[in-house]
Amino acid sequence: MIQVEHIEKKYAKVNALQNISLHVNKGEIFGIIGPDGSGKTTLFRILSTVLLADKGKACINGWDVVKDYRIIRNHIGYMPGRFSLYQDLSVEENLQFFASIFKTSIESNYYLIKDIYQQLEPFKKRRAGALSGGMKQKLALCCALIHKPDLLFLDEPTTGVDPVSRKELWDMLKRLKSEGVTILVSTSYMDEAARCDRIALMMKGKFLIADTPSNIVNQYNEKLWAVSSDAMAKLLIDLKNYPFIKNYYAFGDLHHITMQANSKSDIELQHDLHEYLEKLKHQELFISNIKASIEDCFMALTGGSSDTLHTTKNYE
């Protein structure tokens, strides 16, 4: 469905995309996961035929994104990261407009958007610009879907959207998948990775890894520990100063750490850390072996401190 071979794109001196290759199968939800500035939007623009790559080749349904851009545009739905509907048109007018430019009507493909549009219907006379963030995203999704595309390109559909609306959007994508729609979706929320069939973790124009979420998690080859106590802020500092610490991160209500094993068993490692923290007056101590999440994998792959000036200098 989507085939990308060795795509490169440079803006002035910044390598926005470096040797990106990608295959997405029909009916698959493929997630591109990475922070702002990692190149996600550039990739989406090239695949949506609105930007030319410097090198490489990309095909959608076998059509070339450069030569066959006109056909491709009839078969894809593109939801850009930036809200790009008409702010001064009402909810209903926006949808009608997008239906009419694709020579279709709201009625003919209503079944595709029904679940989300029903939530918008009480506000169909409201100007799009006056909707809340979550509602804007839902309307944008409806507009991208109204011509019944085979493929859906969603650039950060959940950014700035609250957890409940995010879940609804993902439920919606799952239903579209069952209709046979192929979905390429980007996000900077690591916890959304599990909702994709396959994902690529992206940073600074490169794919760090591309696989199923479970394979990526299984490839995490270090022993990861979760630690908590009654004083979490102090705990993070104490963990930082632990002689056998390798990495430490705050992770919601737990801290995640890796340690130098020094041929010790897990039980010994746990015991030693427990003793160290107890001496520092931590109470309600909890130390346990845990499975890595996608966010742990991302930080391990980028070496944690990914966002340094030093690497930006390399761009210049």
Binding site: G34, P35, D36, S38, E156, T159, G160, S188, M190, M203, Y249, A250, E295, F298, M299, T302, G304, S305, S306, D307
Partner: peptide, 13 residues
Amino acid sequence: EPTGGVDPAARRQ
């Protein structure tokens, strides 16, 4: 919403 869109390590920093 100060931390939208940055990588996990930057978010923690």
